[in-house]
């Protein structure tokens, strides 16, 4: 559905990374990993069509992104930015209603059916009770869920999420991740960036690692999130340990555990 073909990304004629080939379909999660400054945000903006590709193409449902209008793109792919403070104190419902924009005529405002859709999106994430709350006065996790609800109200089968768990506390992080997993199960295709390889391993069908101006690794979590790749990409020596429950966690290779005795 969303496909990058031999993509070069960058700003102002400066290439940040090239040779990027990734794809995501409905019911799949693609996780994007990479050190700070490697170009995750630039790749996101290019995938969303917010900045032009330097070379190569992004295809959305088989059509080049550059040939589609903003409204056509918005009906196929929704963007979930990192939750930020808004200048104006909109209610949660107002923010979610803005997700309906691509379905409204150019001169129209939301109709009752759009309000119902917005409430349904909030209800599906379990936050319909926040509908009339000031979006700047709810917790970071609730605000992130509000932005996910906006993307759901957009009725686009693809969700592009920019570090949805950054700056969330443990409880909110687990809540958001849980919802993301449910969304995949209900058929959404999701592109998701994170700094946490364990999160990527747990959630995703495919992982793309961007580093040093190229796609350093792309494939299943087990193929890509190896100690060798992560050590090379992040410049620190890491090991992958298996926990008693069978999960894998990334730890520092020269980790000396504090003694409990």
């Amino acid at each position: 559905m969303l496909e990058a073909r031999d993509l070069s990304i960058g700003y102002d004629r400066r290439v940040v990374a090239s040779g990027i080939e990734v794809a995501v379909k409905r019911g799949e999660i693609l996780c994007l990993l990479g050190p700070n400054g490697a170009g995750k945000t630039t790749l996101f903006k290019t995938l969303l069509g917010l900045i032009p590709a330097m070379a190569g193409e992004v295809h959305l449902n088989g059509q080049p992104l550059a040939t589609l209008s903003r409204a056509e793109i918005a009906r196929a792919m929704a963007y979930v930015p990192q939750a930020q403070h808004l200048e104006f104190a909109y209610t949660v419902l107002d923010v979610v209603l803005m997700g309906r924009t691509a379905h409204l005529g150019p001169f129209a405002g939301p109709r009752p059916a759009d309000r119902e859709r917005a409430h349904a999106a909030l209800a599906s994430l379990g936050i319909d009770d926040l509908a009339s709350a000031d979006v700047n006065r709810i917790s970071g996790g609730q605000r992130q869920l509000c932005l996910i609800a906006r993307a759901l109200a957009q009725d686009a089968p693809l969700l592009v999420m920019d570090e949805p768990t950054a700056s969330l506390d443990l409880g909110n992080r687990l809540l958001v991740l849980d919802r993301v997993r449910t969304l995949r199960e209900s058929g959404y295709g999701i592109v998701f960036s994170t700094h946490d390889p364990d999160q990527a391993r747990e959630l995703s069908n495919h992982v793309a690692v961007i580093a040093d101006g190229r796609l350093a690794a792309y494939g299943s979590p087990d193929e890509t999130l190896t100690a060798a790749t992560l050590s090379a990409v992040y410049g620190v020596s890491v090991a992958i340990e298996r926990t008693e429950s069978g999960r894998h966690v990334v730890v520092s290779a020269n980790n000396t555990r504090p003694s409990t005795q």
Binding site: L50, S69, R70, A74, Y79, P81, M98, T101, A102, Q154
Partner: peptide
């Protein structure tokens, strides 16, 4: 919708 900033407004379908 423009009050959300350029990137978000465009991603929501506004030219």
């Amino acid at each position: 919708v423009l009050s959300l900033g350029d990137d978000e407004a465009r991603a929501l379908g506004v030219n």
